[in-house]
Design a protein around this nucleic acid. Structure first.
Length: 286
DNA sequence: ACGCGTGCCTGTTGGC
DNA sequence: TGCCAACAGGCACGCG
């Protein structure tokens, strides 16, 4: 399940394969996958992939459009991988399959258009992922984008903790709320709460500020460690080279229901918080 | 206004 | 052994 470390890894492995490549055309295999910018689809020829970056759990490709001068705002292809979305570059003889949702034909980097070279695939088994084509200036009109909270690795823990302080509701629900803090999904929420010694179902208003700062500090540590391990692969996640991550080997709680806590040896409990499967140690977390 | 439950989707798993 | 319900979960949406 691509969360911040996985999307970051996808961008890092995808960028060297696509930066500078021209786009010769696009093919949409599933209408609902293109959430916005349908009109752009047939006007991509001659565009060049000029940048690749991540915001929250979104993977963004900047496409410089031809013939309009360098000052023009690039078009953005914004991908949300949700649970099972993948971005790959394959040779032209690689066949689209039943989970292929969108493809871009690419020319070689630096080549002045002409012949297709390789193809960018957006595949998604579950089909929850999407792509939006939009000008940068249009992004504020997109509610989800406009309400995204701060990047957890670009703020200090104290500043992040202030966004939790005084708010009501279960602390795990706030960790997952992308308008409070971005990039955290079910895996890293459970793992960070374990490290901070906080029960996932704790009411945020009952948690001391120091403890919330500790939580935000642990969020940063765990995201950095996970990025260094190229993310977590439970089952489906792969980076843009097809490689699995390794951070799943470091999980303390996620997917370990009933197993022994690595700290105290007591069995881990499973429950549901904010509608999500949740695992925690009733002894180490309070 | 905000917290909570449901639907979307397909492949895997576990229980009977 | 085989079938099918439950489950996986980010986010939009509707409800109270």
């Amino acid at each position: 399940m691509p969360e911040l470390p996985e999307v970051e890894t996808v961008i890092r492995t995808l960028a060297p394969q696509v930066l500078g490549c021209g786009i010769l055309g696009a093919k949409l295999y599933n209408e609902r996958t293109l959430a916005a910018g349908r009109d752009w689809l047939d006007r991509l020829e001659g565009a060049r992939i000029s940048a690749a970056w991540r915001r929250a759990k979104l993977a963004v490709l900047e496409l410089s459009l031809p013939g309009k001068g360098e000052e023009e705002e690039p078009l953005l292809a914004v991908f949300h991988l949700k649970m099972t979305g993948r971005l790959f570059v394959h040779p032209l003889d690689f066949e689209p399959h039943k989970h292929t949702k969108l493809t871009f034909d690419l020319s070689a980097p630096g080549a002045a258009g002409g012949e297709p070279d390789r193809r960018l695939f957006f595949d998604d088994m579950r089909g929850f992922g999407y792509c939006r084509l939009a000008r940068q200036e249009e992004l504020p009109d997109w509610k989800f984008w406009a309400e995204l909270g701060p990047e957890p690795l670009l703020s200090k823990p104290k500043a992040l903790a202030k966004r939790f302080a005084g708010r009501r509701g279960r602390v795990k629900a706030l960790l997952l709320d992308q308008s409070v803090i971005v990039g955290i999904g079910n895996i890293y929420a459970d793992e960070a709460l374990f490290r901070a010694g906080i029960r996932p179902d704790a009411l945020t208003q009952n948690i001391e500020v120091k403890k919330l700062e500790k939580l935000c500090s642990e969020v940063q540590s765990i995201l950095k460690e996970a990025i260094a391990q190229c993310g977590s692969s439970i089952r489906d996640y792969r980076d843009a080279n097809g490689n699995a991550g390794a951070f799943q080997n470091s999980f303390n709680v996620y997917g370990r229901k009933g197993e022994d806590c690595k700290t105290c040896g007591q069995p881990l409990e499973a429950t549901r918080v904010a509608g999500r499967g949740t695992v925690f140690c009733p002894h180490c977390q309070e």
